[in-house]
């Protein structure tokens, strides 16, 4: 679909929000609470925070929540029965205030959750989600979207992208059919596209490395002292994975209450030492350097090769969340340099 451009007046933004809210959609938007900005269910436009680079957690939980019911069950000594999940009653959601990188992040999740076996629960949630992104006018040193094929005003993955222009109004780019449907809820709010250039309203994110140097040469550095060097200070928590928009690794656990229970899909992390541990105690990824390598290689080698998508969108959340300063772009620059040796 060709991208259609419109103008939305500054004052009309709230009206658009109200229209969608009145339409019965659950509105998830960035909210500042106890100093942190994160996506939350909002009732009023006033709750939305617009002064943030990125939320601490990514937007992935709308389609891949930290806890997802995958099967209900009943069990007693002599009978047990699995009960399917009704995905038809998942709510219609609008993700409001997503950054372009986060929107691209859903591509990686899609690739994983549809790799031959289509995960109906993830897909049902995503299908009911509309993504209204806002271009980035601010960035920090941890941002590197431009190094992984992204762009602070990128349209990929969003249904609608809004870019604030110099007078405070918004350039609206309608990217998908879903986006069109949203505009159709309040056509009166939209005017002819402004002439002002989009790019000059975007933050500048310098390119830090050439991602192809890494994705196309990964075999060269599987065995490399770099992994040990980089991961000595890694303490093996899951902060990076849990804030990451593309990390999809999960655990499955049962929780019962009496004879009823649910089987849950829970976020998990390849950086945890027990992640790959066999019952026998044997662990294929025994040391942190192997687990760190898995994290990087999964995103920059295995996913590009198997799923045709780079598993990193350059948001830098992992770097910001890491308690011990495992700065991902610094490590990627090291890898890219290693290849040139």
């Amino acid at each position: 679909m060709e991208i259609e451009k419109k103008l939305l007046k500054k004052a009309s933004l709230e009206k658009l929000f109200e229209k969608l809210k009145a339409d019965g959609k659950k509105m998830y938007a960035p909210v500042k609470k106890d100093k942190l900005v994160n996506f939350a269910l909002v009732d009023t436009f006033g709750e939305i925070c617009d002064d943030y680079i990125l939320t601490v957690k990514s937007a992935k939980s709308v389609a891949f929540p930290k806890i997802e019911k995958i099967v209900d069950y009943e069990h007693s000594k002599n009978s047990s029965k699995a009960i399917d999940i009704d995905v038809s009653n998942f709510p219609e959601v609008v993700l409001w205030g997503v950054r372009p990188c986060d929107a691209v992040g859903f591509d990686s999740l899609d690739a994983i959750f549809t790799w031959d076996y289509k995960d109906n629960i993830y897909l049902a949630r995503l299908e009911k989600t509309s993504i209204i992104s806002f271009s980035c006018f601010k960035s920090d040193n941890n941002c590197f979207c431009t190094s992984v094929n992204g762009n602070p005003g990128g349209t990929k993955g969003s249904d609608i992208l809004l870019t604030k222009i110099s007078n405070g109004d918004y350039l609206v780019e309608i990217i998908t059919e879903k986006g069109k449907q949203i505009i159709a809820k309040a056509p009166e709010l939209f005017e002819a596209a402004p002439t002002e250039e989009k790019d000059k309203n975007l933050t500048n994110v310098p390119i830090k490395f050439n991602v192809k140097d890494i994705t196309e040469n990964s075999a060269k550095f599987f065995e490399n002292d770099l992994w040990v060097e980089q991961s000595l200070r890694c303490i093996g928590c899951g902060a990076c994975a849990f804030v990451c928009p593309t990390c999809a690794c999960f655990d499955i656990q049962d929780e019962s209450a009496g004879k009823n229970g649910t089987r849950l899909r829970l976020w998990d992390s390849c950086c945890f030492s027990l992640f790959t541990m066999h019952t026998s105690g044997h662990n294929p990824r025994e040391v942190q350097s192997q687990r760190w390598r898995q994290r990087i290689m999964h995103k920059f080698s295995y996913m590009p090769e198997r799923l045709n998508v780079v598993g990193c969108i350059g948001c830098g959340r992992c770097s910001r969340a890491c308690p011990v300063d495992m700065n991902i772009s610094e490590h990627l620059i090291n890898l890219a340099e290693e290849v040139k040796k």
């Binding site: 930290k66 303490i235 928590c237 899951g238």
Partner: peptide, 10 residues
């Protein structure tokens, strides 16, 4: 909390 266990690891 999302149980990343950073508290434990640190």
């Amino acid at each position: 909390c999302f149980k990343c266990y950073a508290c434990r690891s640190a």
